[in-house]
Design a protein around this nucleic acid. Structure first.
Lengths: 305, 305
DNA sequence: ATAAGGCTATCTGCTTTTGAGATAGTGAGA
DNA sequence: TCTCACTATCTCAAAAGCAGATAGCCTTAT
C-alpha cells in the first residue's frame, strides 16, 4: 500500500471528484481512477460510490480518512526530524493571543531572536478559537491560547496566569453604577475571543444587560473607546496598567477568582517537537514570572479593595 | 518519499547490515543499497555510516526510527479500519494476568464468545511487565494489568479493584506468628509479577525478612504449597476464597488500603480500536460488579477484623 | 605480507509500474 | 432525447524497480 495512493484518495474524497483531484495533483483523471482502483483492491473494500456527478466517500473511506491525515503529518515529521539535528534552525510558526503578545511575549521574542538567530520565528496573532484550529490542522507548531482547553489531540501546558479586570471610563465611579446605564456597550476583540464569553457571563451574574458588543482589532483602539466612555471591556490587568497610570481609564478587579484566566501553550501531542520549539519553550518557561509581571503587579496594587 | 523505503531503512537499522536486511525482505542487497540511497537523497541527510562490517545508524537515522515505527503501525491501522465495518469480526488479541483471568474473565469471555461468535478471541496470560511490553509493541490490542501504570503511549482504564490478602497455611495463628519463622519463604508467580513487589514492601514494613521467593506457574500450585506450609503469598481475595472455604489455607486482610490493587485495561492510545475491541470493552464495563464478585465478598466476610 | 571473507557501491539488462492521452460508457438534468 | 459532466478502460511511452554480476574496501586470519 502506497502513501501516494492514500494522498490521492484524500484529495478525491475532499473534492468529491476524481477529475478535480487529478487537476489538483497535477495529473490526469485516468491515473487517479487507476490508483484508487488498486487501493480499493488492496484494501478489499470500495472507498467511493461512483455516480454521474462525481463520487462520494463510502463509510469505509470515511473511516480511513482521519488515519490518512495522521499518516501525512507523520510523513512530514519524518522529513523534519531527519533534518533537525538538535541545533535550532529553520522556521518556527507559533500563534498567540493579541493580549499575550503585548503583555508577555515581547521580551521572550527578543531574547529568543538574540539567542537563536538561525530560527525564523513567525508569530501569528488571533483568537483562541482560530489559533486552536490552526494548531489542530498543523498550520502552527504551537500557540498561546486562553484556557481551559479540552481537545484530545492537543497537549497543553500552563505558562501564564492572567488576572482579568473590568475596564471602564473614569466617569464610572463604582461597579454598581454600571447597572444604571441603560444601553451599556461591551467592547471585545473579535468573534472567537475567549474573554468575550467571560464578560458575558460576568454581566449575566451581575444582572446587567448589554447590547451587542462592538468589535475592534487592536488593543489601543479598545482602550481608547473605553476611555471615551463608549463601552466597557475585560482585559488582563497588565495590559491596561499603562493606560490606568496615565489616568485614561478606571479598572475594577473581579471578585474571587472569576477573573483568573490561564494562558496555555498548546501543541498537537502527536506532532514532532522541533529543536527550535524545544528551545523556545525552555526559554518561555525560564522567563515566566520575570520582570514585566512584577512591575505591573505593583503599579496596580492601589486599585485593589 | 515511499514508506517501503522507510521499512527497508528500519530493517537495515535493526540488522546493522544491508545484506541481512535484504534477505529478510526477500530481495537483493543492491536494491537495498539503492533504496537507502534515494531515501538519503530525499531527506538530505545520511542515515547510515558505512563501514567494513556493515552499517550503523546515524543520529538522523535514530531520530526517524520511532516515527517509522508509528508510520507502519498507522498503515496497518488503515488496513484494519477499512475492513472494519462496525460489525465485530476477525481476531482480537488480548492479554490478562493469571489472577484476573481466573477471577474475572471467565464469565466475560463466555458471554463475549456467545454474543460475537465471529470474533476469534485470543487471550494470552502473563505478568504485568510482559503484557505491557506486548501492548506497547502491538503484539496485543490490549491487556488487563495491575496498576499503577505510567507510560506515555498507553491509554488506561480501571476495570476492577482487587483486594490482596496474605495467604498462609492454617498452622499460622496470626500475623505476629510470621515474624517468629526464621526462614519464611514467599511464593510468587514469576519474574515480573506485580504482586511480588507488594509482598516484598509489605514484609519490609512489617520488619519481616524473607528468603528468595519461590516461583510457580499456576495458581493451584501456589495455593497447594501455601497450604502445605512451604511459604506464604499474596493473592486477590476472590481467588483464594474457595481454598479458604475448604479449610486448606488461612487468609489475612491487609491494613488500610495497602492491599488494594487496581486492575487496568491498557491499550496504545494511538492504536486503532477495532469494533471487536469496542464490543469487548462495552461488555467488560457492563459486567463489572457482577455476580462472582458479590458472592466472594460475602463468603470471606468472616475473616475480617 | 598476503589471502580470504564479508561488506557496500555501481553497472546492466529485464520486468513492472506509472503516467498521459484518447476513447467509450453512464447517468442526471434540460 | 440530447447534452454535459463524469468515470472506466485501453494503449503506448517513460520511469522506476529488481536481480545478477562485478568492483572496491576493510578486517581478520594465516
Amino acid at each position: 500500500m502506497d502513501v501516494s495512493d492514500l494522498v490521492i484518495f484524500e484529495a478525491v474524497s475532499r473534492h468529491g471528484s476524481m477529475n478535480r483531484a487529478a487537476s489538483e495533483l497535477n495529473t490526469v483523471q485516468s491515473n487517479v481512477t487507476a490508483r484508487i482502483r488498486t487501493l480499493e483492491d488492496e484494501l478489499g473494500v470500495s472507498l467511493f460510490q461512483r455516480h454521474a456527478r462525481g463520487v462520494s466517500t463510502t463509510p469505509a473511506g470515511q473511516r480511513i480518512l482521519p488515519l490518512v491525515a495522521r499518516l501525512t503529518r507523520l510523513l512530514a515529521d519524518v522529513r523534519t526530524a531527519a533534518r533537525d539535528d538538535g541545533e535550532p534552525h529553520g522556521s518556527l510558526h507559533l500563534g498567540s493571543l493579541e493580549t499575550t503578545t503585548a503583555l508577555r511575549l515581547s521580551p521572550l521574542l527578543t531574547q529568543f531572536a538574540r539567542t537563536y538567530p538561525q530560527v525564523r520565528l513567525i508569530v501569528t496573532t488571533g483568537t483562541t478559537r482560530r489559533l486552536l484550529d490552526d494548531v489542530i490542522n498543523c498550520r502552527l507548531e504551537g500557540a498561546f491560547v486562553a484556557g481551559p482547553v479540552n481537545h484530545p489531540d492537543l497537549h497543553q501546558e500552563t505558562v501564564f496566569t492572567e488576572e482579568l479586570v473590568l475596564v471602564t471610563s473614569r466617569q464610572i465611579r463604582d461597579l454598581a453604577a454600571l447597572k444604571e446605564i441603560a444601553d451599556l456597550k461591551t467592547i471585545v476583540f473579535q468573534a472567537g475571543c475567549s474573554y468575550r464569553q467571560r464578560l458575558d457571563s460576568l454581566f449575566a451574574d451581575m444582572g446587567i444587560v448589554t447590547a451587542r458588543p462592538l468589535e475592534f482589532g487592536s488593543l489601543e483602539a479598545i482602550i481608547s473607546c473605553v476611555s471615551a466612555g463608549i463601552g466597557v471591556t475585560l482585559l488582563p490587568k497588565g495590559i491596561v496598567a499603562p493606560a490606568w497610570q496615565a489616568g485614561r481609564i478606571a479598572v475594577y478587579e473581579l471578585p474571587h477568582d472569576e477573573g483568573r484566566v490561564e494562558t496555555l501553550f498548546v501543541r498537537r501531542h502527536d506532532a514532532f517537537v522541533s529543536s527550535a520549539l524545544t528551545a523556545f519553550l525552555q526559554l518561555a518557561r525560564s522567563c515566566v514570572g520575570g520582570s514585566p509581571e512584577i512591575s505591573l503587579e505593583l503599579s496596580l496594587e492601589r486599585t485593589a479593595g
